[in-house]
Measured scan of single mutants.
Amino acid sequence: KKYAKSKYDFVARNNSELSVLKDDILEILDDRKQWWKVRNASGDSGFVPNNILDIVRP
């Protein structure tokens, strides 16, 4: 599994996007496009722009 940390707050604008808060740790589900599909600690998933994410190295 790959993880990323959010650098900023992001508010979803539709139901395919995921609202995240700065410093959230997110599991990366799909990173093939500019919007990555991620899952948060609550189990919710959706798309966020990859420019707000930093890859977390294990």
Rank of each mutant, 00 (worst) to 15 (best):
K1G: 04
K1S: 07
K2R: 05
K2H: 05
K2I: 15
K2W: 04
K2S: 05
K2T: 06
K2G: 05
K2Y: 15
Y3S: 05
Y3C: 07
Y3L: 08
Y3V: 06
Y3I: 09
A4D: 03
A4W: 07
A4F: 15
A4C: 15
A4L: 13
A4E: 04
K5S: 06
K5A: 04
K5H: 05
K5W: 04
K5L: 05
S6H: 00
S6C: 03
S6P: 06
S6L: 02
S6F: 00
S6I: 08
K7E: 07
K7S: 07
K7I: 09
K7N: 10
Y8A: 14
Y8D: 15
D9N: 11
D9R: 05
D9W: 03
D9F: 07
D9T: 06
D9Q: 07
D9Y: 05
D9S: 08
D9H: 07
D9M: 05
D9G: 07
F10H: 07
F10V: 03
F10K: 02
F10L: 03
F10W: 05
F10E: 00
F10Y: 08
V11T: 09
V11G: 07
V11Q: 09
V11D: 09
A12G: 11
A12W: 01
A12P: 08
A12F: 01
A12R: 10
A12L: 02
A12C: 05
A12N: 04
A12S: 09
R13I: 08
R13D: 05
R13A: 07
R13K: 07
R13Y: 05
R13F: 05
N14K: 10
N14F: 04
N14M: 06
N15T: 11
N15P: 14
N15Q: 11
N15R: 12
N15K: 14
N15H: 11
S16N: 15
S16D: 12
S16E: 12
S16L: 08
S16M: 15
S16H: 15
E17K: 04
E17V: 03
E17Y: 04
E17I: 02
E17M: 13
E17G: 09
E17W: 04
E17C: 06
L18I: 14
L18D: 01
L18N: 00
S19R: 05
S19N: 11
S19D: 09
S19K: 06
S19P: 06
S19V: 04
S19T: 09
V20L: 08
V20S: 02
V20T: 10
V20M: 05
V20Q: 00
L21F: 13
L21G: 12
L21Q: 15
L21V: 12
L21R: 13
L21I: 10
L21M: 14
L21A: 13
L21D: 11
K22F: 03
K22N: 04
K22A: 07
K22Q: 13
K22T: 09
K22D: 00
D23A: 12
D23I: 00
D23C: 09
D23P: 01
D23L: 04
D23M: 06
D24F: 00
D24S: 09
D24K: 02
D24G: 05
D24I: 01
I25F: 15
I25E: 11
I25Y: 12
I25H: 09
I25V: 13
I25T: 15
I25R: 12
L26I: 10
L26T: 02
L26W: 00
L26G: 01
L26N: 01
L26C: 07
L26K: 00
L26Y: 06
L26R: 00
L26V: 12
L26P: 01
L26Q: 01
E27D: 06
E27Q: 10
E27K: 03
E27F: 06
E27A: 05
I28Y: 00
I28G: 01
I28V: 13
I28R: 02
I28Q: 00
I28D: 01
I28P: 01
I28L: 12
I28N: 02
I28F: 00
L29C: 11
L29S: 03
L29K: 04
L29H: 02
L29A: 04
L29D: 03
L29Y: 02
L29N: 03
D30M: 06
D30Y: 06
D30C: 10
D30S: 09
D30K: 03
D30Q: 10
D31S: 10
D31W: 08
D31Q: 10
D31R: 09
D31N: 09
D31H: 08
R32A: 14
R32Y: 11
R32F: 09
R32I: 06
R32S: 14
R32V: 10
R32D: 15
K33E: 15
K33C: 13
K33H: 13
K33D: 13
K33Q: 14
K33T: 11
K33S: 13
K33M: 13
Q34I: 12
Q34H: 08
W35K: 11
W35M: 14
W35G: 12
W35P: 12
W35H: 15
W35A: 14
W35S: 13
W35Y: 15
W35D: 14
W36T: 14
W36A: 13
W36D: 02
W36N: 04
K37L: 10
K37V: 09
K37G: 06
K37Q: 08
K37D: 06
K37P: 03
V38C: 13
V38Y: 01
V38D: 01
V38S: 01
V38R: 00
V38I: 06
V38G: 02
V38W: 00
V38N: 01
V38L: 07
R39E: 09
R39A: 10
R39P: 01
N40M: 05
N40F: 02
N40K: 12
N40L: 09
N40Y: 03
N40T: 14
A41M: 12
A41H: 12
A41F: 11
A41G: 12
A41P: 12
S42C: 03
S42W: 05
S42G: 14
S42Q: 15
G43V: 00
G43Q: 05
G43I: 00
G43D: 05
G43N: 08
G43E: 03
G43Y: 04
G43W: 05
G43H: 03
D44K: 14
D44G: 11
D44C: 12
D44T: 12
D44I: 08
D44Q: 14
D44A: 13
S45V: 11
S45L: 11
S45Q: 08
S45F: 06
S45I: 03
S45A: 13
S45G: 07
G46A: 03
G46M: 01
G46R: 01
G46N: 02
G46Q: 00
F47Q: 03
F47V: 03
F47D: 03
V48D: 00
V48Y: 00
V48T: 02
V48H: 01
P49A: 04
P49E: 04
P49H: 12
P49R: 04
P49V: 02
N50K: 14
N50E: 10
N50P: 12
N50Q: 10
N50S: 10
N51Y: 15
N51V: 08
N51G: 11
N51F: 07
N51R: 12
N51K: 14
I52R: 03
I52N: 06
I52H: 15
I52A: 08
I52L: 10
I52F: 04
I52K: 03
I52Y: 09
I52C: 14
L53A: 05
L53T: 03
L53N: 00
L53P: 02
L53D: 01
D54V: 11
D54R: 06
D54Q: 06
D54M: 07
D54K: 13
D54A: 12
D54L: 09
D54E: 09
D54T: 11
I55A: 12
I55R: 13
I55N: 14
I55Y: 10
I55K: 14
I55G: 11
I55D: 11
I55M: 10
I55C: 11
I55Q: 10
I55L: 12
I55F: 08
V56H: 15
V56M: 13
V56R: 10
V56N: 15
V56T: 15
V56G: 10
V56F: 10
V56P: 14
V56E: 13
V56S: 13
R57C: 14
R57E: 14
P58R: 06
